[in-house]
Simulated assay, not measured.
Amino acid sequence: MLNQESASSSVESESSSNNVDGCTSDGDIRRSNRKRKALPAEETSSRKRTKKTETIQDQIDAQRAEFEEKYEEKNQLGEGGCGSVFAGCRRADHLPVAIKHIPKDKVFCKHKDKNGRQISVEVAVMLKVESSTASSVGHSAPVSLLDWYDLQQELILVLERPMPAEDLAHYIEEHGGSLQEDEAKIIIQQLVDAAVHLKQNNIFHRDIKVENILIETDSDVPRLRLIDFGLSCINKKTSKYQTFYGTSAHVPPEWLNSCTYSAGPTTVWQVGVVLFEMLHNKDFRSTNFIRKRLKISSTLSLDCLDFLEQCLIKVPKQRPTLEQLLNHTWFT
C-alpha cells in the first residue's frame, strides 16, 4: 500500500434474534440439540474469496479517499510510456506537487522490500534516496517522494514539484537550442555530483537525459533536479545488465556490441549525451555518433572538449569514473 499502515476493515457480527439456535421468546437461552448442516467445501471457499475481495476493495477505496482528501489534482503536465503526470497541491498548506499515475502494467521494474513485498522500484529507490538525505524536500537533486498509493490497478506517486522550474529540454529550446559553455558547466557539475550521490547509495537511474532533468529558474544560477526513477534499479557494484531499460537513442556502445552494460560507465556515457545536447543544438543518437555521422564541435574550450570526449569513449573500461569526472580540470 502506501507509506502508512494498511486501512483495516472489520465486520461486526449480527445480534442474535429470538427463536434462533435455542433462543426462546422469553429470552432464556438453551442449548440446541439440532446440529448445523455443514456447508459444502466449494461454497465455503467461495465465501472466503468473496470476503477477501471485499476487504481488499475496502482498503483500496480507503486509500483513494485518503488521497483525494489530502491532495487536489489539477491540469495534466505530461504523458509518457510509463504513465501520466498532473499538477496538484497539498490541501493542508497548498504545497505544489506532481501527481504521477502509473497503470500497473506499466510498472516494469519491481523490488522486494525487507518484508518480502514486491513494490515498485521507483518507490523503493526514492525512499532509499530520502533516507540518505537529511530533510530532502527541496534539498536533494532528486525530487522527493511525498506519498504513494498502491491501488491495485494503478500506482499513484505524489512528488515534490519545484516552482518555478522546467525540464532541461525546454530550457535549452528557450535559450535558442543550445547553452553557453559556462552555463552548461554549472548544470553538468551538479549532474555529476548527483550521479555520484546515487552511486554511493547503489542506485542506477538508467535514463538520465535532458527530459528527466528539471532546472529551477528562480535564481541567477540554475539548479538541477532529477526526476523519473521509473526505470531505475538498486545496483550492485559488480552487476552487469542484459536487458536494456532507458532511451534507445542513447544506448552505450557496449550494449550495441555485446548486449551488456553496467551502471558506472553507462551513467558517464549519459552525462556526455546530456552535455552534447546542451551545446550542439542537435539530438544525440548513439549509432550516429559511433559511425561518425555526429561530431563534437571544435569551437569548445580544450577542457570542455576533453571532458565530453572522455564521457563518450566507446570502450566502457576506458571511460573515467564519475568521481574522476568531478575532479576534471574543466570544473576547476
Rank of each mutant, 00 (worst) to 15 (best):
A249T: 12
N235P: 06
F284Q: 04
Q270D: 10
S297A: 14
N235S: 14
S258G: 11
L302S: 15
L300F: 06
P253Q: 02
S232W: 12
K292N: 13
P265K: 07
L294K: 10
I296M: 06
V273T: 08
L305C: 12
A263T: 03
T299N: 13
R285L: 00
L300I: 03
K240Y: 04
G272H: 08
T243E: 10
V271A: 14
L224F: 04
H280S: 13
F289A: 08
F276H: 10
T238V: 01
T243F: 02
R225M: 14
H250E: 03
Y241Q: 00
Y241T: 00
C259E: 13
E309Q: 13
H280N: 14
G272A: 10
Y245V: 03
V274H: 03
K295R: 15
G272V: 08
S262F: 08
T287H: 03
D228K: 11
N235R: 03
V251A: 11
L308C: 09
D303H: 12
S232Y: 10
F289L: 00
D306W: 03
L308R: 03
Q310C: 11
C233D: 10
I234F: 09
T266K: 00
T243G: 01
F244Q: 08
S286M: 09
G264M: 12
K240G: 09
Y261C: 08
L224D: 07
M278V: 02
L305E: 11
S258K: 15
F289M: 03
I296F: 03
D303G: 04
S301K: 11
D283Q: 12
V251S: 02
V271F: 09
F276E: 10
M278R: 05
Y245L: 08
L231C: 01
N257R: 12
L256T: 02
G264Y: 05
H280I: 09
L275H: 07
S301A: 11
L302K: 14
Q270M: 13
C259S: 15
Y245K: 00
Q270F: 01
A263W: 07
V251F: 06
L226V: 14
A249S: 15
E254L: 10
C233W: 00
T238R: 10
R291A: 14
S258R: 15
S286D: 10
S239Q: 15
F229I: 05
K237Y: 09
D228E: 12
F244P: 07
S258I: 15
T243M: 05
N235Q: 11
K236Q: 15
N288G: 00
W269M: 04
S286Q: 07
W255A: 07
L302W: 09
T247N: 01
S286K: 07
E309R: 11
F276W: 13
Q270R: 09
Y245H: 07
N288C: 02
C259A: 14
F289P: 00
L279W: 06
F289E: 03
C259I: 06
P265A: 14
S297Y: 10
T299K: 13
G264C: 13
E277H: 09
H280R: 08
N257V: 13
S301Y: 09
C259Q: 15
I290S: 06
N257A: 15
L302R: 14
V274D: 05
K292D: 13
C304A: 14
